[in-house]
């Protein structure tokens, strides 16, 4: 546990001292602010659903920028050799990177709460739906960070890691569209893999255990594979 804490502190410090995190946060909030103002003035409805969908898309594009460095940079600069020859479990290294990146993403998401506060000030938003929406976003971020780390662990090229991550996210996003082209049982398999298929109900306020299970299982699987990849010597 002490090792995990030490590694987490190191990763969080690296994340917070890197300009990448701030750039991503700035782009994220700028786009969200623009969308929020536009939607609010156009619809005059106290609803954050549109914003949540916007955050879903932006996360898919921006989380790979945060995760691409994680292992790829350590491998390129050969500091991974220092970590893997210290008395440290591979799982601790993976969990520390996962927790640090997820903390940053959730921190950026938290800043968007200002929109909920504005809606509450001037209207009567459905807070149940907003809570469900943030739960969906947190689970979505967990999956994206875990898969992003996995992609970063298989290459020492950061751009390749980011491209692979975005590719996988887009495939998962559109998996439900592909399901119409497939025959049983592959159609239901593709449908169940769909990222948006599990995200949408929660953002609408319908929280199903199966949807939560999807995000948690996919995150754990990606973290397991990342650990396994690191253990390959």
């Amino acid at each position: 546990m002490r090792t995990l804490r030490i590694l987490f502190a190191k990763e969080l410090n690296a994340t917070l001292t890197s300009p990448i995190g701030y750039t991503v946060a700035a782009v994220f909030l700028l786009v969200l602010g623009y969308t929020f103002s536009l939607t609010l003035f156009a619809t005059k409805v106290a609803n954050l659903q549109y914003i949540f969908h916007q955050m879903y898309v932006l996360s898919i594009l921006l989380v790979p920028v945060l995760t691409m460095r994680s292992f790829a940079e350590e491998r390129r600069s050969e500091t991974l050799e220092l970590l893997l020859t210290a008395p440290v479990q591979e799982l601790s290294i993976v969990l520390a990177k996962y927790a640090a990146t997820l903390t940053l993403v959730l921190g950026i998401f938290t800043l968007s709460l200002v929109y909920a506060v504005i809606l509450d000030r001037y209207g009567e938003p459905d807070w149940g739906q907003i809570h469900a929406g943030y739960l969906a976003l947190a689970l979505h971020a967990s999956l994206l960070v875990a898969v992003g780390l996995l992609m970063s662990s298989i290459t020492e090229n950061q751009v390749v890691a980011a491209a692979l991550s975005i590719g996988i996210f887009l495939m998962l996003w559109f998996a439900d569209s592909v399901s119409y082209l497939l025959s049983p049982p592959f159609d239901s398999l593709a449908l169940n893999l769909s990222l948006i298929g599990h995200f949408k109900p929660m953002v609408s306020g319908s929280v199903f255990v199966s949807d939560i299970g999807y995000f948690i299982t996919a995150s754990m699987l990606a973290l397991f594979l990342t650990t396994w990849r690191l253990a390959q010597r």
Binding site: E78, T79, E81, L82, A86, V88
Partner: peptide, 14 residues
């Protein structure tokens, strides 16, 4: 790994 100290060829540092 608890008993060793190791310096790789590239002497990597953070």
């Amino acid at each position: 790994r608890r008993h060793i100290g190791y310096v790789p060829e590239a002497a990597p540092l953070y």
